[in-house]
Nucleic acid binder design. Structure first.
Lengths: 102, 102
DNA sequence: CATACATATAACCAAAAGGTTATCTGAATG
DNA sequence: CATTCAGATAACCTTTTGGTTATATGTATG
């Protein structure tokens, strides 16, 4: 299942998402962009794959990753809706307060 | 430090934020809204307080919680900016592709 | 003042997160 | 074909997360 919140909760994963939104990249290039080990990056990629935010393509010894745009977009919209709703509630209350004041 | 992503990564915490955006609530009412123990809720509240997304007010034996609107709003805007940027990157690439096609 | 109630805290637990090093596999290359 | 290179996997570690039960503290209330 795609848990957007889990996927984006780590800054390394957010940076990875940003990188592969620009362009499809082999794992090696992603690893080079950070100062942690290849297996550590692999685990982040595994989480992003598990949450379906990445697509992978094998080509010989290289493994390329790219953003799964529809899933990401959908997850982002749902998140915006959910968090936006919290502020709407607040604004509704403010509106009610102002109306009572009239 | 305020880590919005950490705060919102749990569905229970998101629901709590929603509840206290509506109105200031005593801990008891928050506990009653879930099927987990009072100490468990307390830990979620502690995380939300740590990330400064909640304000607490003691009144006798009651402890009231409310949304820290400015911090939440700011965190939400930063999050939108960061995640929105990922899609912008993608759209920029699409734009480039379409322009190349002309 | 004894009791009930709201909250806080301690001790414990299992699972997940985030990292490491070492090693294996499988593809490409001198 | 031996070696190198990219990636996968295993074993291990520490900290965090998310929960539990039991108990303490402090405020109201009959």
């Amino acid at each position: 299942m795609s848990d957007m919140y889990r996927a984006i909760s780590d800054p390394i994963r957010r940076k990875i998402l940003n990188m592969v939104a620009h362009q499809e990249l082999p794992q090696l290039e992603i690893v080079r962009a950070f100062h942690i080990s290849q297996p550590a990056i692999k685990k982040h990629l595994a989480i992003l794959l598990e949450e379906e935010l990445l697509l992978e393509r094998r080509e010989g010894k290289y493994c390329f990753y790219r953003l799964n745009v529809p899933i990401f977009q959908n997850g982002y919209e749902q998140l915006q809706h959910e968090l936006g709703h919290i502020l709407e509630n607040k604004l509704t209350k403010l509106k009610q307060y102002l109306e009572e004041d009239l």
